[in-house]
Amino acid sequence: MTKLREALPETLRTARLTLAPPRLTDLPELVPLADNENVTRWTTRMPYPYAHADGVDFVENIATGADQKPYALRNEDGAFIGVASLMFHAQLPEVGYWLGEPFWGRGYASEALGALVAAARATGLAPMLAAKALADNKASLRVLEKQGFQRVREVPDDSDRHKGKPTVHLELEFER
């Protein structure tokens, strides 16, 4: 999947959003938005509390590693609003995202995810994408299903944070 990571564009644009590699200059906006349990509790790995050092680690280590390709999301006002990523730790490339709470409910997640799915598809290197969301995370499931992801199973989660909680696995198969 290294090839897929390298084939993805550096930046993506949608009607309202710019998706670009996360930079240290994002941190003054990113850290306060990430340091919110309403955000982190839906994620598998984001630490809470989320300190500046976690932001530096994300930009310098996680974002540059082979395991994922995250994009910093900025909206039409130039404000940092969240992160959308393709992750390569499982068999299928997996999409994931988080949005700062002030930016919920405006369709930004669908827009970012749409761009990510289109970019992955355009590489021709991924026949399918996967996604996961807690069964309680109705908003995220709606966003994923709107992009064409279909539920394939609901199983107890095996991550430390969500151990045992029902989690919906979804897949999106690209048409040939």
Binding site: L24, P47, P49, A51, H52, A53, D54, V56, N61
Partner: peptide, 19 residues
């Protein structure tokens, strides 16, 4: 330093060490 906040507390140090 470029990337260290001030004031700097034990929680900052622990967060950095966890990384």
């Amino acid at each position: 330093l470029a990337r260290v906040p001030f004031p700097y507390g034990r929680a900052d140090a622990e967060a950095w060490l966890k990384t």
